[in-house]
Amino acid sequence: MIMKESVESSLIFEKHFKVIASLTPSRTGLVIHVVFKNEPLPGRQVTPNVEIWFPINGYMTYMYKTIEENMVVLIESIYDVSDSEPAMHDYFIAPGKSAEAYFYIRIPLEHVERMKEIADKEGIVTLFLHLYFSVLYRARSFAQKTYKLHLVYKFNIPKVIIEQWLARWIVTYAQYIDLPSKISREILSDFIEAVKSFNVGAYKAAVAMARRALQQALEDKGATKGKKLLEQINELKNKKVLDKATASLAHGVRQFGNYGAHPQNDLLAQVTRDDAKLAIDITKKILKELYSIQ
């Protein structure tokens, strides 16, 4: 069964001004669709005009439970991606009329991983969308008044929908670094961490994470868990999962990774930028060979 990927929540101001927010997954984050509805009041009540003033700012958080407390984790700020020109962006909404705006928030890989962890454990992920903007209430009348609103939307996302979102995001992150989309989230995360470490000059961390990504991939392809990486490489070589040349490359990553993972060898200082780049390039080559469609 294919479930709808979008989720929706709404809030009402002064019994008639409704602001509806919906979340739809994109390649690397969420598109936020906000609809402003000035619904007529019942009977003979006069429904005021409403004017929305831009910019609309905001951010998104989620709940993360630890043993001691419930933590609120900040993801990122939202970005206005509406088509309107900034100078024409304020909305005058007469009774019975509506207006809409679109925003975007990127979901970094570390939050993708944590959401998966929460969904697996709790069966649901709770997201909070915060919107800040000003409203001119009773607009174009002598009684008009400005309100500064802080709207907080709560979205309880069930695991089945979160998994659809995660699958979309993981494929995109894999494509960005030119790796097959079949690679698991854990392996991809370790490889991206290796690249990120390299980009900030943390070469020791880069080779250690490249080694970790390699080992997880070998175990995913049938190497016995708990064995040393040396033994796992030889095991898959004997099973013909790795050819002789690829196994040799894997041993090179193993040796690089040992520098970062085992300080007692006193080889940590020997890891250079070139070493780290070579370890990452070799790991990427091996991952592509292991997971590419034959």
Rank of each mutant, 00 (worst) to 15 (best):
Q255L: 11
I20T: 12
A87F: 04
H89A: 15
V72W: 01
A213F: 11
N49L: 06
Y137M: 06
L23V: 05
D90A: 04
V50I: 14
E219Q: 15
F191L: 12
F128I: 12
Y104H: 14
G58C: 07
Y59L: 10
D80K: 01
H150M: 11
V35M: 08
R44L: 12
A202E: 15
Y176Q: 15
E69F: 01
H111Q: 11
E68M: 01
I93C: 02
Q255T: 09
V200L: 04
F103M: 12
K240F: 03
L287M: 10
D266R: 07
R44G: 10
Y147Q: 03
I2W: 00
A276H: 13
R138C: 08
D120Q: 14
D274W: 00
F36C: 03
T224R: 10
L230I: 06
L30N: 05
D90S: 08
S22Q: 00
Y79E: 15
M71T: 05
K15W: 07
R211E: 15
K37E: 15
A223R: 14
S184F: 04
T172F: 14
L268N: 03
I286H: 04
G257R: 08
Q175N: 14
M71V: 12
L236G: 01
P55A: 05
E122F: 01
L151V: 02
Y137D: 11
K121C: 10
I12R: 09
F13G: 06
Y153W: 01
M63Y: 03
L268P: 00
I233C: 00
K37D: 13
L179K: 11
K244E: 07
R106Q: 12
L214C: 09
K145P: 00
S292T: 09
K116S: 13
Q144H: 08
Q216S: 14
V50T: 14
G260F: 01
A202V: 01
F54G: 13
F191I: 13
V81W: 05
Y62S: 05
E122M: 05
L249T: 00
Y176L: 15
T272Q: 12
G58I: 03
I286K: 02
P86I: 02
P108M: 09
